[in-house]
Computed example of a mutant assay.
Amino acid sequence: MGNPVADKFSADDFARYRSKRLEAGISANAINREHAYLRAMFNELKRLNHWNSENPLSEIRSFKIVEKELTFLANDQIKLLFAALSESSNPDTLLVSQICLATGARWSEAEGLKPTQLRQGAIEYAVTKSGKNRTIPISAELETELQQLAKDGRARLFVNCYSAFREAVDRSGLALPAGQLTHVLRHTFASHFMMNGGNILTLQRVLGHSDLKMTMRYAHLSPEHLQEVRNLNPLARLTLG
């Protein structure tokens, strides 16, 4: 945008800027975030009485985002992935993946675990993307493995193993959508949680979503999702009559 002076900045300036960003291949989602940050900046300046005019971005609509399909792994695919991970030159890769599948953690959260985050049968995720701490119960078997690593006195339980995970996925032959490499583990946790009868509000807390709309992407996988439609639609009621 050329560092415009704030009181000279207009909605037209931002509209031209985001058009250029789109042409440069920047995603609409990323541009919406920039829009939100700039709009929030002017709102904050106004709250602090440093800005007396209207927010120049208040009337600009964000781009409508078409929701992408979230890929998750079926049980046989998980076994296939684990077989490839067990052959990895980095022994931490398999356990980090298991943590993601067991707790719905992001890869960075699981990979960066410290011994101090182990809490009597649970893992506490701190300094998260949402800014909220989450404490997630884990199985006794997984806790034993992690406590064994913690006894070594290391500052972090694992070394970086993202690249080793990518190599394992390639070896397994699994085809994953762009941008969903390690995130497929989080999607797999959430999807299986709902398919196995989990509660959507519990899932929201486990994933750390501040907005329930984010979690609702998984609601349709619940075996009870919209089942009332079978009995409460007019055709069914007419048949019953």
Rank of each mutant, 00 (worst) to 15 (best):
S10N: 09
N55S: 06
R16W: 13
A6W: 04
D152C: 10
E228P: 00
A175W: 14
V66Q: 07
R156N: 01
A140H: 06
A150T: 02
P4Q: 09
D12H: 05
V169Y: 02
R47T: 13
G198H: 01
S58Q: 12
T215F: 07
D92R: 04
G197N: 01
A190C: 04
A140K: 09
P177H: 14
L95R: 11
D12G: 00
Y162T: 00
H192F: 04
I65A: 07
R186Y: 07
Y17S: 04
A164R: 10
L207I: 01
E69P: 00
A126C: 00
K79R: 14
H209A: 07
L181A: 13
L235S: 03
S163K: 14
D12N: 12
S53Y: 10
L95S: 11
N160I: 03
R18F: 09
L149H: 09
G241C: 08
V169C: 00
S58D: 11
N231T: 03
A110W: 03
I99K: 10
N29M: 12
V5I: 14
D76E: 15
L48I: 07
A11E: 11
E109N: 12
L226G: 01
F42Q: 01
K64V: 13
H35I: 00
D13E: 11
W51H: 05
E141P: 06
L157A: 05
V5K: 13
E111S: 14
K8A: 12
Q120D: 14
S10W: 02
S130A: 12
K8N: 13
G121R: 02
R119H: 04
W107P: 06
K8R: 14
R16I: 10
S53I: 09
N32W: 02
L232Q: 05
F82D: 12
T71M: 10
S53W: 08
L238D: 10
R171I: 10
A30L: 03
L212H: 05
Q147K: 08
I60K: 03
M195F: 01
L212T: 11
K46I: 08
L221H: 03
A6E: 05
G179W: 09
M214V: 10
A164S: 15
E141I: 00
S222K: 04
M214G: 05
Y162R: 08
E23P: 00
E143M: 15
A6L: 15
I200A: 09
H50I: 02
S139M: 03
S89F: 08
S88Q: 04
